[in-house]
Design a protein around this nucleic acid. Structure first.
Length: 965
RNA sequence: GCGGAUAUGGCGUAAUUGGUAGCCGCGCUAGACUUAGGAUCUAGUUCUUCACGGAGUGGGGGUUCGAGUCCCCCUAUCCGCACCA
């Protein structure tokens, strides 16, 4: 009987569906294990071969864990809100819900064909009101919580209110809590809420008509679509993720992720330790009349002095400050600029503010700036220091003001050189040795060496000097140790239609959340998906989009009277909203009373294994960790970190094929290795589906496109042979690794491969390609080998099942040793996610078993179980053929018996001076003396010893014999 | 510029702890079977040499009886961040 994968796969997929084989319960005697894939955005293009790579790996692990007796949660769902469906809607008028539904259906069909063991009864979709109810609910909680720095966790905002009322905490700013009216109090609290509304500089993408989060912008253009992004001040919802910066850094120490991904996150969070220092202004006036200045009270002469705060990571270099720089947005600029400089400063500020992000980033190397005419006083040296304005100082980091130490900061150095400002060396690699900075070509940024020209810290090591300067500054009351983070709050509003509506309405211009019991607040219908004529988001078109406070329901927009009926928020939430908590919802996906029950989360706790792409390092994986920590703070989540172990599957790149068209004859195509081809042809992409092992199917090529119907070919030389001459007498195509894309005709669709080779072959082949974490080009050239292996594997069972009815096999049968070696290797490989070597091990095992006259069923049975995580369909069929009634999923993972693996002899490589010369088989318990004697007795040994006595003999039992002569 | 990763036959890769470099597969070569092969099977396949041998894991140096593996320097490619003070 032949291996009929089509029939087998269809049958078992149906069996699994009918028997709910992969249904998973929330309680069990068994230990629990949660295996999760990053859920996909269901795009119109369907699944390509890159998607399943991670899914196959996690599926193998999930199946393996089940066989080992774990209760495994292995769900799947869809990140269904997003821009492409909405862009499509704008172009065609097709409602994104319909497009999304169709795409999901197609994804599901494609996924089902590959034989994954997902518990589909737990499926979630972020666009489903039953799901996004809880996204909205979380938003409401974020709105009503603030970050308590003392307790280092989120607390209800009502606690802050009572503290302010009781006077336990004093309101910062000009007015006390008692003096504020209700509106002012609400505005004040907005500075503390974890979800807050504020006028902030946002990344505005005009083409997409929306703002974007920092991780959605790369090099000044949007990640989706590559459209230009500009800086703009807008009133937007944000999440105060920066409050969690330290915990997000600390948490990385307790998760099992790759070091590179942890580094990406640490980089993104960008923690830096340093000092905040107040520099007094040498300007007439006092703090009260200088907007943007702060008052500080010098201890010597207790007069409040107007000053401003800077942040530095190099307090030790304070003696080398030769100018100060303010960002163009700094409040102080206006009040300190001298009349002579005013025109120039204003022109510069206007220019700098109008520059797009892209220009700014592209021209990072260009130095620009202007002197304000004002001076500050170095608090340690009492020197007068000029204050400049430049856009190399960023408004969003620190205080937007710096002390410039050109000798030891490359940016300050470039600025000083450009404007001819003094450069003073205050750090030296060697003690007391200085050089003239005028001769330098670059600054000395290193944090090693000794302080020089630095008053009381001169001679100290940099590290000591830093501490000493901070101590002095703290004594003087002009600064303190502090930590800054690069991580900014996440902009949470999108001016789009296809996203979660905010459960928010506006009363006198101030946001109120709708009652939790009224959730979900469903996405309304709109006539158009574009912004409104007045520039409002698409929800501005909705006819039924107002909140009737008294009746607690959504009513016609026209009924807004701002007395009982109020306007609802018109923005929607960003893509990362729905994906930030989906892993928790899977634990209890049909719960209508709560996000998830306490019982469910107490049972599953966290994701034990998360598989997905590293491209989410600065987006989803940060947001989800933040979301989870917040839910932890309010008592929902039970673990601080959501994803215990994370495996990043490598990106699958496309492998494009080319034909070479003659430059002089449009119908002539010259094969790759024809001499002179390179100079006389231009490469043209050709559909990879009409190329096999880089050999072009000429007939299919002629049929591919009308302009090629009369194509003529110059083929490879018939006579050459040998390596790399695959196509003698045929047309050989060139190839290149590129992004998988329609326009390059290199997209490989898994469905085609499944129908040609079967899902099991596809699964094995994707794993065989190389380590899961490694990026690799997709190349079908090797799939035949894997397919041949499965046929061979099948044949072992097919030819042995007839003759195994007899007595149990003798345990000395050689098949047992092969089996137990395989069990050991496969188990090890799965544990370390080395699935490519697993496939290779199965091949070796199959080759060895095939060479035996017969294989006992005591070997065939565990082997079927062993391969079932990798190739579940064939495993089910073989298991069934062996006489089992149920699914192989109910079997037990085999364990190896070391008794079968003991060797009574070992073949030693014998080296002379470290070079392997020959091998020698000795008993397993041979000693060094035995080994040396055997070498001396051996003919080859005598030859290499050449009559000399060995100087040294290295003998490592069961490893090597090395003789030094 | 900073941070991270990678580099092994014609190709994808293996070598888990410093111990026979190249397992497994593709491709290629020769042969068997066949009307035929994009089927199946057998043997071979790092380079060089008739052979004995020699060389060989991006390049250079080092540690070691022994290095693909450890250390130092360099090169190339990929990824992330990028005026973050």
């Amino acid at each position: 009987m032949d291996y009929n994968f089509t029939e087998i796969e269809k049958r078992w997929q149906q069996y699994w569906r009918e028997h709910h084989t992969y249904r998973c319960e929330n309680s069990s005697e068994k230990p629990h294990f949660y295996v999760l894939d990053m859920f996909p955005y269901p795009s119109g293009a369907g699944l390509h071969v890159g998607h399943p790579l991670g899914y196959i790996a996690s599926d193998i692990y999930a199946r393996y864990k089940r066989l080992q007796g774990f209760n495994v949660l292995h769900p799947m769902g869809y990140d269904a809100y997003g821009l492409p469906a909405e862009q499509y809607a704008i172009q065609t008028g097709q409602h994104p819900a319909i497009t999304t539904e169709q795409n999901i259906k197609r994804y599901r069909e494609q996924l089902d064909k590959i034989g994954f063991s997902f518990d589909w009864e737990r499926e979630v979709r972020t666009c489903d009101p039953e799901y996004y109810k809880w996204t909205q609910w979380t938003f409401i909680q974020l709105f009503h919580h603030y970050y308590d720095k003392e307790l280092d966790k989120a607390r209800p905002i009502s606690e802050l209110v009572s503290k302010l009322e009781s006077g336990e905490v004093e309101a910062e700013g000009e007015k006390s809590w008692a003096e504020m009216c209700e509106g002012e109090r609400q505005d004040y609290l907005m500075n503390y809420r974890l979800a807050y509304l504020a006028d902030i500089p946002v990344n505005w993408c005009a083409e997409l008509g929306t703002v974007l989060a920092n991780d959605e912008v790369v090099n000044g253009v949007s990640v989706r679509g590559g459209y230009p992004v500009e800086r703009k001040l807008m009133r937007q919802w944000s999440l105060r993720i920066s409050a969690y910066a330290q915990r997000l850094v600390d948490g990385l120490d307790e998760v099992d992720w790759t070091e590179s991904l942890k580094e990406i996150q640490r980089n993104w969070i960008g923690r830096s330790e340093g000092a905040a220092v107040w520099f007094p202004l040498d300007v007439p006036g006092n703090a009260n009349v200088l907007p943007g200045a702060q008052a500080y009270m010098p201890q010597v002469d207790p007069q409040p002095v107007p000053s401003f705060e800077i942040f530095t990571t190099r307090p030790d270099t304070i003696f080398g400050v030769s100018f100060m720089v303010l960002c163009p947005e700094h409040e102080l600029i206006d009040s300190i600029t001298t009349p002579e400089q005013r025109a120039e400063v204003e022109a510069y500020v206007t220019w700098a503010k109008n520059r797009s992000e892209r220009e700014r980033q592209a021209e990072v190397k260009k130095v620009s700036g202007v002197f304000t005419g004002a001076y500050a006083i170095n608090p340690l040296t009492e020197e007068r220091i000029p204050i400049w304005v430049s856009d190399y100082v960023l408004a969003g980091y620190g205080t937007g003001a710096i002390m410039a130490v050109p000798a030891h900061d490359s940016r300050d150095f470039a600025f000083a050189r450009h404007f001819g400002l003094p450069i003073r060396q205050v750090v030296s690699a060697e003690k007391d040795v200085t050089s003239d900075p005028a001769t330098w070509t670059e600054s000395m940024d290193s944090k090693t060496g000794y302080s020089v020209n630095s008053g009381f810290v001169t001679g100290m090591k940099v590290k000591e000097a830093m501490a000493a300067v901070i101590d002095r500054i703290e004594e003087m009351g002009i600064g303190h140790r502090t930590v800054n983070y690069r991580l900014r709050d996440a902009i949470f509003s999108r001016q789009r239609y296809w996203g979660e509506p905010f459960p928010v309405y506006y009363k006198e211009g101030r946001p109120c959340t709708i009652p939790e019991e009224c959730l979900p607040l469903c996405l309304p219908e709109v006539k158009e998906f574009k912004p409104t004529a007045t520039g409002e988001p698409p929800l501005g078109h909705a006819e039924v989009w107002a909140w009737d406070e008294a009746n607690r329901k959504v009513v016609e927009t026209s009924r807004v009277d701002n007395k009982t009926v109020f306007p609802l928020e018109l923005s929607t939430m960003p893509g990362f909203a729905g994906s930030s908590g989906y892993y928790l919802r899977y634990m209890d996906p049909r719960n209508n009373e709560a996000y998830f029950s306490h019982e469910a989360v107490s049972y599953w706790r966290q994701v034990d294994l998360y598989v997905g792409g590293a491209e989410h390092g600065t987006g989803h994986l940060i947001y989800a960790r933040f979301w989870n920590k917040f839910l932890y703070d309010i008592g929902l989540s039970v673990c601080q970190e959501p994803f215990r172990k994370l495996v990043n599957q490598g990106m699958i790149q496309g492998r494009s094929n080319f034909v070479y068209r003659s430059k002089t004859d449009n119908n002539l195509f010259i094969s790759k290795n024809v001499p002179g081809r390179a100079e006389n042809t231009v490469p043209i992409h050709v559909d990879i589906n009409i190329v096999n092992n880089d050999v072009l199917d000429i007939e299919k090529f002629r049929a591919w496109r009308p302009e090629f119907k009369d194509a003529r070919f110059e083929l490879e030389d018939q006579t050459v042979s040998g390596d790399n001459k695959a196509g003698a007498g045929r047309y050989v195509c060139g190839w290149e690794i590129e992004k998988m894309s329609k326009s390059m005709y290199n997209v490989q669709n898994p469905d085609d491969l499944v129908s040609r080779y079967g899902a099991d072959t596809l699964r094995l082949y994707e794993m065989f390609l190389g380590p899961v974490e490694q990026a690799k080009p997709w190349d079908t050239n090797g799939i035949e080998g894997v397919f041949r292996f499965l046929k061979k594997f099948w044949k072992i069972y097919d030819s042995n099942l007839g003759n195994t009815a007899s007595a149990p096999a003798d345990s000395s049968h050689p098949a047992f040793k092969i089996l137990h070696q395989t069990i050991k290797k496969i188990t090890d490989d799965i544990e370390r996610f080395s699935f490519n070597t697993s496939v290779s091990t199965f091949m070796i095992c199959t080759n060895e078993l095939s060479s035996l006259p017969q294989v006992p069923r005591e070997v065939l049975e565990p082997l079927a179980v062993l391969i079932s995580p990798f190739a579940p369909h064939i495993a089910e069929e073989l298991y069934h053929m062996l006489g089992h009634e149920g699914s192989v999923c109910a079997a037990q993972w085999p364990t190896y018996d070391p008794a079968y693996l003991v060797e009574d002899s070992f073949t030693y490589p014998v080296s002379f001076n470290g070079k392997m010369r020959f091998t020698l088989t000795l008993p397993a318990d041979a000693t060094q003396q035995d080994a040396l004697a055997a070498v001396k007795a051996d003919g080859l040994g005598q030859k290499w010893l050449d009559g000399k006595e060995p100087k040294k003999v290295i003998f490592v039992p069961k490893k090597i014999i090395n003789i030094v002569v």
